[in-house]
């Protein structure tokens, strides 16, 4: 958030002097033309941002407000909404075991898939950062899966995760009898995590470019001091890429909490709700059962969970994310 806030503060700082300038000029009639120009400029500003402003009010702020209201009602969109206060929230949090199951599934998925994907991403980036022949070739192969649309990925992984599919073939090489990934309540979440790690290459590419930016002198000095490659990784490479790891962690968590298409296409939440995550639950409640009030409440609860984890991540960031500029 540091940069974000910096950016925002910068924006405020950049504009507030103008405001300060405008105020006195308006009072002193010495430079009335500038005021007029300023007013015209401001008018054009609002005109230019009107597409965003209209969209913000019509597609975001308005819907957000009505979402709050809908979440306080019982409504099927055909009859009139009935105001029920916080009933939908208490129902989700205390009455509906499926909500907790979905939340747990989502949490499990996010907590495993994001760190595992990042670990693979860092590991591969570190390998590619070496003086490897055919680096471009390897990088392309590792990045390619991230270009495949989710629907196509889901279709292929239906086959990859099939009982006699390639994943179980691979496990068979090690004498492991692979499960029926998508139909076994124990293995369906790991199956979805396998699918997500296919996209680890996105992080690899970002991390690799961050590694490229680390000054060579650091490694030269470390080598003179007798540090081995592993020590060099943990003492130089890793601290220097923590900002990118952190960025990927935040974006990954937000994305993982909103997982939908894979679940909808591969399992539709089954078997026995073992893969039902929050957004598919919300979708089912809203567009399957027309429980619009309940679904809206679930959406807000999800928002709270996402914000909560984002804040948590930023809190811990001070301990492990290293910004070079802070030191210098």
């Amino acid at each position: 958030m540091t940069a974000d806030t910096g950016e925002v503060l910068g924006a405020v700082r950049a504009t507030s002097p103008h405001r300060a300038e405008d105020a006195p000029t308006r009072r002193t009639p010495l430079r009335p033309r500038l005021t007029r120009r300023g007013r015209i400029e401001a008018g054009y500003f609002w005109l230019f941002i009107s597409p965003w402003l209209i969209g913000f009010v019509g597609f975001l702020l308005g819907p957000m407000i009505s979402s709050v209201y809908i979440s306080l009602t019982e409504w099927d969109s055909f009859t009139d909404p009935v105001f029920v206060g916080l009933d939908n929230y208490t129902e989700a949090l205390t009455g509906d075991p499926v909500f907790w199951k979905a939340l747990w599934n989502t949490f499990f998925y996010a907590a495993v898939s994001v760190p595992v994907g990042l670990a693979i991403g860092v590991w591969l980036a570190n390998l590619l950062n070496k003086k490897v022949r055919g680096r471009k070739f390897f990088r392309t192969l590792i990045y390619l899966p991230t270009l495949v649309p989710l629907v196509a990925t889901a279709m292929v992984f239906k086959m990859v995760l099939a009982p006699s599919g390639p994943l179980n073939d691979l496990l068979g090489l090690f004498g492991v009898d692979g499960p029926n990934w998508l139909l076994d309540p124990t293995w369906v979440k790991p199956g979805l995590i396998v699918l997500s790690t296919w996209g680890a290459g996105a992080a690899t590419v970002l991390l690799l470019s961050a590694m490229n930016g680390i000054p060579r002198e650091f490694y030269e000095a470390a080598e003179i001091d007798g540090a081995g490659p592993i020590r060099q990784f943990w003492s130089i490479t890793f601290p220097m890429i923590t900002p990118i790891i952190f960025f990927n962690l935040i974006m990954g968590l937000i994305g993982a909490f909103q997982i939908f298409s894979q679940v909808y296409i591969l399992t539709d939440g089954g078997p026995d709700n073992a893969s039902l995550t929050v957004v598919p639950l919300l979708f089912r409640e809203a567009f399957g059962f027309y429980h619009l009030g309940y679904a809206s409440a679930v959406a807000w609860l999800l928002f709270v969970v996402i914000i909560g984890f984002t804040i948590l991540a930023f809190r811990t960031a001070r301990g492990w994310v290293f910004y070079e500029t802070e030191v210098r």
């Binding site: 504009t15 957000m64 959406a299 984002t310």
Partner: peptide, 24 residues
């Protein structure tokens, strides 16, 4: 372009990135 309230508007733009699509 310069206009009073621009800074606040830009903060609103950034803040909207936090809102998940499921809410709307």
């Amino acid at each position: 372009l310069r206009a009073p309230g621009k800074g606040v508007m830009f903060m609103v733009v950034l803040a909207t990135m936090m809102i998940p699509a499921q809410i709307t």
